[in-house]
Nucleic acid binder design. Structure first.
Lengths: 143, 143
DNA sequence: AATGCAATTGCAAATCGTTTGCAACACGAG
DNA sequence: CTCGTGTTGCAAACGATTTGCAATTGCATT
């Protein structure tokens, strides 16, 4: 079910196409992102990057994330409580279920819910620009 | 449709019952909350409170909101971008549509969506503890 | 009404996640 | 290889919120 099959995105190519320089720090961060399946926060990315190149700064991680976010290459999620967490774009839209005990994030998608949201917004005289649906729960003990 | 009919809650009574002292700052804040329909943030509450009693501090506003939140008397919402906004509890559960141009918040409720959320969580092996559904949109130009 | 003390306050300083100013530096077009 | 601009690391600034502390106050008690 939750098996992702996102093709490793070629962020470098994307950046180049957008006329943005490929620097050493960016390359390191980009590689980390493309081989990461989960929803890491800036600190996690920074630590992994620092392990590869100790001179990379947290600022640069933040700046790079903001850059990629602006390009639409990644999404930023501000789940309750913690820092922003990032995920590769390109996997198609989905919502999130957060395990409040472990922080694990499970992705899911419901066309029916999306449709209902549209109907509600329409009924209220609005067009949805984007939305946020997060379920916070804990693993059920007995199935 | 969006006509609220929440009876002015008697926060003072609630606090007293919980064995919590009624102080002058708290009384002022409580009154402001009970006569406020919208979703004010701490700063707004602070300003209104300061207009009544200039010695009230922002810290006290935050402390009081946290107290009320802990008692379940109010809810805190961290909408995208801005500071936390508060609303009286007791109006029954609902979700929010945020006008991204004005910041206005419209409440709505969909049993169908709630039900679908439960089904999804269940299918993933989880029990929902709480959830967050926020629609961000702009007013439609032509109906 | 006066007493006593824990709860509460205001203030300033601390916190957390994130952004920014700046001078040094390094891409990559030429 | 040179040059100009984009990027960097650093430290300081940021906005929202919380906290330590000494001074104050509510209120149960006399």
């Amino acid at each position: 079910m939750n098996v992702k099959s996102i093709p490793r995105p070629d962020y470098e190519e994307e950046l180049r196409k957008a006329g943005i320089r490929i620097t050493r720090p960016r390359r390191v961060i980009l590689n980390i992102l493309s081989e990461t399946e989960g929803h890491p926060d800036a600190l996690e990315i920074f630590h992994r990057a620092a392990a590869i190149d100790g001179s990379i700064s947290l600022s640069t991680v933040y700046r790079t994330m903001k850059l990629l976010e602006g390009m639409g290459a990644i999404h930023r999620h501000a789940f309750e409580g913690g820092p922003s967490r990032f995920e590769q774009a390109g996997g198609g839209h989905h919502d999130h279920l957060i395990d409040i005990e472990t922080g694990d994030v499970i992705e899911f998608k419901s066309d029916r819910i999306e449709q209902l949201q549209d109907e509600i917004a329409r009924a209220l005289g609005y067009d949805i620009v984007h939305h946020r649906l997060e379920l916070y729960g804990r693993k059920r003990k007995r199935g």
